[in-house]
Amino acid sequence: MAGRHYGQYCGVGTALELVGERWALLIVRDLLVGPRRYSDLKRGLARIPTNILAARLKELQAAGVIRRAPLPTARAGIIYELTEFGQGLEDVVLALGRWGFRAMGEPGEDDVVTEDSMTMALRTAFEADSAAELPDTVYELRIGDIVLTATVAGGTLRLRPGVAESAADLVLSAGPGIRHLIAGDVTAESARAQGLVGVLDGDPGLLDRFMATFHIDADPGPPLAAAG
């Protein structure tokens, strides 16, 4: 940690010394979804070199951000999970996600969406105040091979992988273009017409409710040239 000391008596500087290295906050992002094995983290962050993943995990442990724990099953093995100190990064990660959303252009050829990244994207976009004024709704989202169930009730959001335990009110298929729906760049009708989202089951009118529940204002943002 000493090699990354900025020599600044400042909370921002201290935070960057702890979690500012490349990949560190993406590891934290995935662990905010839940504890993960080393192999789970490697699969979710496919482009991270194994030596860098091992180094970041050691550094985050030394900083008290994460800890190792035995698998909570009869199987032998180790998982990584956030400490209480590490959980304190949740608001930071969500705010950073909202800020970064403004600079997102179209996905690159090699860019991927993972179950954990999509889970955190929905948590980032969740509008609790708006949701509290709307009827309880269960959404099922299918993005490539990813299936997530989002249960919105009483202004709270619960996300779980897999299909809804009971029939969802609205089942959507989408690709990365769903960000335009979340940004409000398009109407629900236009999003369907352009193939950004598809309604597989349920009332298509609930797409407007989805847009009120999950929203990030993408404007103003930097010019795309500056963002690149």
Rank of each mutant, 00 (worst) to 15 (best):
R4L: 11
Y6Q: 14
G7E: 07
Q8T: 12
C10D: 15
C10E: 13
E17M: 14
G20E: 00
V28F: 02
L31S: 02
Y38H: 15
S39L: 14
K42V: 07
G44Y: 06
A46P: 01
N51F: 13
I52P: 01
A55P: 01
R56W: 04
L60S: 00
Q61F: 01
A62S: 14
G64F: 02
R68Y: 02
P70I: 05
R75M: 15
I79A: 02
E84F: 06
G86L: 05
G88I: 06
V92H: 12
V92F: 14
A95W: 03
G97A: 06
W99M: 12
F101I: 07
F101P: 08
E106G: 11
D110L: 12
D110I: 09
D111E: 15
V113R: 08
T114G: 11
E127N: 15
E127S: 10
E127W: 03
S130R: 11
E133N: 05
R142D: 01
A150D: 09
A150Q: 07
V152A: 05
V152T: 06
E165F: 05
S166Q: 14
V171F: 05
L172I: 15
G175A: 14
G184K: 11
D185A: 11
S190V: 13
A191F: 05
V199H: 06
D203Q: 05
D203H: 01
M211E: 04
M211D: 04
A218S: 15
D219S: 10
P220F: 03
P222W: 09
P223N: 09
P223F: 08
L224V: 12
A225N: 12
